[in-house]
Amino acid sequence: MNQKANRWFFLWRHLNKLRWVVLSLVFTMLVALPFVYVYQTYVAAHAYDLLAPDEKRLYDLVETLTAPLTDDPAEDLDAIKGNTWSGTFWGLQLTDPLAVVGQMAAALEVWWPLVLTALIPVLLTVLFGRFYCGWICPATFLYELNTNLAVWLRRLGLRTGRRRFDRRIKYLVLGLGLVLSAATGAVLVAAIYPPAIIGREIFYAVALGGFGAGSVFFVITLLFDLLVARRGFCRYLCPGGALYSLLGRYRLLRIQRIVENCNDCAKCNAVCEFGLDPLRDGFGQECNNCTACMAVCPTEAMTFRIRFRDQPDQGPGHLGRLYRKQQGGGREAA
């Protein structure tokens, strides 16, 4: 029983909680921004007396919350606009790489100002892999809650989806989406990409009076995840996930298994939302560094490594029964 030291594991096992905090914050931002916008329009209209009682309540609430930050809400609260698909943060524009690629396909030309806005996300993806899918995507927030719902339903004895498909389908979806965007001259990938849909649907619902067409699509993906395949849309169909996976193929930061500490309990495989195989070192380009496997590992066998490639399969964990059986003869002799 000689465990290898995993010095920072006490930090890493809590990263999953931090990830949930980040996901919740991003989602909260997407919900709060439309309300802030509505408040701004009330301010711009200079018509407090003409507001309905519930509109006045909203006005008072947002005013109380933002009063310490600004005395010119009509202008200053413009600091954060947009959503995770494309947003403006204090003048810094950030755009999802899929938006850039989709726009290139639709217009058949490269619009450099837009490409530059995707530079930071692309660089982060090259370094950290598909981290967007696990740490920021507002759809992930709902999809993971959906997974929890599936677990509860299963406890009640109901059947939920456990099918598996070829995870390369999503690259096909990405390619097909881009080809159709080029053929129709419209950015069609925006219509089938849940994080883009969620950002604008929340805005439609809050500020423009109702959900739009995209919410139907999103509900269908939720049902697909629930009834057909766990986290199926992200694993098998998401065009943005496909693009992020390609960008993150040679990512620097990787979660890797320390074979000396592993006891083959397979909790990491059970908890992995993307259906990867951490137990046999099967991370690949799909891993989004969500750290769920780290949080669940009982023997501190997961760690971050700075590498361009995954370790090859290291065989059974040294604390496991299988390894001892393999080594059994040798150890007795020594």
């Binding site: 921004l33 439309p34 916008y37 701004q40 329009t41 711009a44 009509a74 413009d78 606009k81 947009g82 959503n83 698909w85 494309s86 947003g87 403006t88 755009t95 938006a99 989709g102 726009q103 639709a106 217009a107 058949l108 619009w111 837009l114 001259g185 419209a186 950015v187 925006a190 219509a191 883009a196 950002g199 604008r200 805005f203 439609y204 500020a207 423009l208 739009g212 067409a213």
Partner: peptide
Amino acid sequence: ADFVSRCIRCGQCGEICPNRCISYFGL
């Protein structure tokens, strides 16, 4: 034609319009 191919449907125009005059197409 150029507008439809250039627009990435991010909705920021509607989110900044102080007059709430910008709406968005469904199908």
